[in-house]
Amino acid sequence: MAENMSVVINVNGAGREVSVEPRKTLADAIREDLGLTGTHLGCEHGVCGACTILLDGEVVRSCLMLAVQADGAEITTIEGIADGDALHPMQSAFSEYHGLQCGFCTPGMILAGIDVVSRNPDPSPQEIREEMGGNICRCTGYQKIVESVQAAAAVMSAEGGSA
């Protein structure tokens, strides 16, 4: 067993230090060492998008990174996007437009949706489908997911902020 390494990550605005084996993926460290189980693991090989997080503001798959690679980075997980009890507009829209069924893909969908809107404030349904093609919903509730992202985009644009 390789020796553990100390990793310092800014997680949702707070500095955290964990001690992990080099082989531990960032996704597993988020869930097991940081205790943030909102980040879901579907396929663990970069196909399903459930483990999507923001790394230094950019959308990435946390199952395709090692935790040791996040040393010194800032990450945002699904737990970090609400403002206290006030949901993020993307979360509110998923609730209002029924953008989830079983909810397993939802954390990744919401972070991917925030990323799409941050780059394109008024995405068309087709653009949302293409941009979010890397996030799979096995309930196949895509229609409502697209509607949710569009609705959130309108709110986020009106608020003048992207996140």
Binding site: G49, V59, V60, A112, D115, E131, G133, G134
Partner: peptide, 9 residues
């Protein structure tokens, strides 16, 4: 190539 999350890394 892949998706945004793939191209970012």
């Amino acid at each position: 190539i892949g998706h945004r999350a793939i191209r970012n890394r």
